Simulated assay, not measured.
Amino acid sequence: MKSIELFAGAGGLGIGLHDAGFQPVNVIEWNSYCCDTIRENKKRGIAAVDNWNVTQGDVCKVDFKPYEGKIRLVSGGPPCQPFSMGGKHGAYDDARDMFPQAIRAVRETSPQAFIFENVKGLTRASFRNYFEYIKLQLEHPDIKARRDEEWEDHLARLEQHHTSGSRSGLNYRVVAQVLNAANYGVPQKRERVFFVGFREDLGVSWHFPLRTHSREALLWDQAHGDYWDRHRVARKDRPVASASVPSENHTNLTPWRTTRDALLGLPDPEFDPVASEKLLNHRFQPGARSYHGHTGSALDEPAKTLKAGVHGVPGGENMLLRPNGSVRYFTVRESARLQTFPDDFLFHGSWTETMRQLGNAVPVELARIVGEAVASHLPMKAA
């Protein structure tokens, strides 16, 4: 199934969608380090990206009209800085908002479906009107903003069109939901908002995949020893179970995956540097320290959200918190495990730059799950 990937970053969303059966005919990303990461893995013959055609540059300059009617899916993660909880919250006044380009790609290609993701901050109460504005534009991409039209005025026209019952032009059935990656088997508590739309003429009825993993199941697993037995943790080193843990596992869900689960089989880069440096991107990074608000990720819970930019690596949040209270930075390979990238995927650039790529990425496994749910509802042939 042919697709187009926008704002590809280091490829997390795209690799997951590849695993779900989509083949991008164009992968667009402006950041040179991200493009170098993808190109390096193409050279190394990594199957998930081997056939990707990478376009490095400004998406605003890409003409999507030649792809009209030829692709099944448009996907991507429009830059999230305008809505990030750690950013300046510029939203609709921020030139870095690339949702208009994502909507243009949908309008010009008329795909059967689209998948876009962004940070949870987009759903904040202060951005609610703009959230609805994005959703209505995705539902009715033909209703374009006029030259010099304020976004509030465009929103009013979209609302009028939406409530009029008119179904002329290009229309999509759109659903949006905040998904916690930990609830789908990713060893990281990472919440992102997903927009999924199907072209209206397909008549698709769809819902987001139901969660498969839970915190409650993890607590039960730990309280009754199965988790610790699996990891061969001595009884003297096991924490005392919380009194609130039920005596029975009342859920049919799988336990959340933890940081310990994710790092299984990797040598400690601080204490075994020789073995560690034989692995891709698994080198110890000194200088980690804990302070208020930046305490690292506990070993026996899903990791905290990996971060990027000035509130990520320099802030020190991308750290492992050991049971004895000491901390160290995650290596790039460990961070890739937390984002469920394959172990043979190499990240290009310095530690700070590669951690930025990972902090901005969509977990591969979450992308695969959403992608398979979308693919299963598309017609057998392109239309």
Results as ranks from 00 to 15, higher is better:
Ile38Leu: 15
Asn180Gln: 09
Ala102Lys: 10
Ala145Val: 09
Lys278Glu: 12
Ala382Thr: 14
Asp153Gln: 08
Ala156Thr: 11
Leu320Trp: 08
Leu179Glu: 07
Asn51Trp: 10
Phe347Ile: 01
His377Cys: 15
Phe194Trp: 10
Lys70Phe: 04
Trp351Tyr: 15
Arg157Lys: 14
Asn41Tyr: 07
Gln81Ile: 04
Leu378Thr: 06
Gly225Leu: 06
Asp300His: 15
Met380Ser: 14
His162Asn: 11
Leu13Asp: 00
Leu338Phe: 10
Pro302Tyr: 12
Ile103Gln: 01
Gly45Thr: 05
Gly11Asn: 12
Arg167Ala: 07
Leu219Glu: 13
Thr37Met: 09
Arg44Trp: 04
Gly316Arg: 04
Ser84Pro: 00
Gly11Val: 09
Gly9Asp: 10
Cys60His: 11
Thr331Pro: 02
Val310Ile: 12
Tyr33Pro: 01
Arg173Trp: 00
Ala243Asn: 03
Ile4Arg: 04
His282Met: 10
Val25Asn: 08
Val49Gly: 11
Arg238Ser: 11
Pro273Trp: 06
Trp52Arg: 08
Val62Asn: 07
Asp201Lys: 06
Asn41Thr: 09
Arg230Cys: 11
Arg215Met: 09
Pro269Ser: 13
Lys236Arg: 11
Tyr130Asn: 07
Lys120Cys: 09
Glu159Ile: 05
Trp30Ser: 09
Glu132Asp: 13
Ala275His: 08
Arg283Asp: 00
Tyr33Asn: 08
Ser214Phe: 07
Ala308Pro: 03
Arg235Met: 06
His377Lys: 15
Leu219Val: 05
Asp272His: 15
Asn129Lys: 07
Lys42Leu: 11
Phe127Ile: 13
Asn180Asp: 14
Val204Cys: 13
Phe7Ser: 02
Glu270Met: 14
Ile46Cys: 15
Val240Glu: 13
Met355Thr: 06
Ser110Gln: 10
Ser326Pro: 04
Asn180Lys: 08
Ile46Asp: 10
Gly90Glu: 02
Val332Glu: 05
Ala361Lys: 01
Arg257Ser: 09
Thr55Leu: 12
Ser166Gln: 03
Leu338Glu: 01
Ala336Trp: 01
Phe127Lys: 07
Val370Ser: 11
Ala91Ile: 00
Gly121Met: 11
Leu299Lys: 05
Gly315Phe: 14
Arg147Gln: 12
Pro255Lys: 03
Ala336Thr: 02
Ser276Asp: 03
Gln285Trp: 13
Ala373Thr: 03
His140Lys: 02
Pro302Val: 08
Gln160Tyr: 04
Pro239Asn: 08
Ser84Asp: 01
Ala361Gln: 02
His213Asn: 14
His311Val: 03
Ala336Leu: 00
Arg146Met: 11
Glu117Lys: 01
Thr352Phe: 01
Tyr291Leu: 04
Asp94Met: 05
Ser164Thr: 01
Pro79Arg: 03
Asp58Glu: 06
Lys307Thr: 13
Pro314Leu: 10
Ser376His: 07
Arg44Tyr: 01
Gln23Leu: 08
His224Lys: 10
Val274Thr: 10
Ala217Gln: 06
Asn26Val: 15
Val49Asp: 14
Ser335Val: 08
Leu170Glu: 06
Val332Asn: 04
Ser166Arg: 11
Lys135Thr: 15
Lys307Asn: 03
Met380Ala: 15
Gly11Phe: 12
Pro239Gln: 03
Arg333Met: 00
Ala91Ser: 12
Leu155Pro: 07
Ala298Trp: 02
Gly57Ile: 11
His207Ile: 05
Leu219Ser: 14
Lys278Ser: 12
Leu253Ser: 01
Phe198Val: 09
Ala375Thr: 00
Arg147Val: 11
